[in-house]
Simulated scan of single mutants.
Amino acid sequence: MTVLVLGLFIFLGAHSVRMVADPWRTAQIARLGPGRWKGLYTLVSIAGLALVVWGYGLASAHPAVVWTPPVWGRHVAALLTILAFVLIAAAYVPRNRIKAALGHPMLAGVQAWALGHLLANGTLAAVVLFGAFLAWAVADFVSARRRDREAGTSYPTGTPARDAMVAVVGLVAWALLGFVLHEWMTGVRAFG
């Protein structure tokens, strides 16, 4: 569990710098330059993510059951992950109405993904992993929306064609991960 917690601390810590130390972040970008800052940020994020994956695998080898998930938890998780993938797609497809409404659909998608996985998994490692991501995504979403309000940031209105593109990309990515890649990546069949 130590490796998992360390990985979460590094990965989510790197992704929280703007939320908790924005002036320091701005000063570092000015000092290092955007390219070097992004390079360091990427290296730290990859290291943290690698520790998260490794730590979760280690903790899952000897699972401590915190609670027994209800059967319906898997079905709700499937629906929430559909929503998550559509929201994540909305973060990358320009000029869609989801991004215009939420501003930060990636963070909303992480919330849906984490909540769904909490409902479907009851081990201590799962509660730590998905609980940490859920708490971080909620805090970062609130922080990002506050920054938007303070800066007067607005997002361009979307078009129905872009909304359709978001839905298709999200659903295809969800199906690919759920039916093909999830078991390969995690050793757990998402469906079936």
Rank of each mutant, 00 (worst) to 15 (best):
G170Q: 01
A114R: 09
K38C: 07
L43A: 14
I88M: 14
V5W: 12
A125C: 08
G187M: 09
V17W: 00
I88A: 07
A78Q: 02
G187Q: 13
L6E: 05
W174A: 04
P105N: 08
H117P: 09
V168A: 12
A47W: 01
L49D: 06
T2Q: 08
A137V: 03
V172C: 06
R147I: 04
R162C: 02
L129T: 15
W54F: 11
I10R: 07
W184K: 14
S45F: 03
P160G: 01
D163T: 05
W54L: 14
M185G: 10
P70E: 06
G103L: 13
L49H: 08
A139N: 06
A135G: 15
V66T: 10
L40T: 03
E183Q: 15
A90L: 01
A108V: 15
T186Y: 09
I82F: 05
L83K: 00
A101F: 08
V188R: 10
L58E: 15
L40Y: 13
S60H: 08
V93L: 02
P156T: 01
R147D: 07
V110M: 14
E183G: 14
T2S: 10
W184S: 04
M185R: 06
A167G: 05
P94W: 03
G187K: 11
F11R: 11
L32Q: 12
R145N: 05
L83T: 06
L87V: 00
L79K: 05
Q28V: 11
L177G: 13
A151T: 09
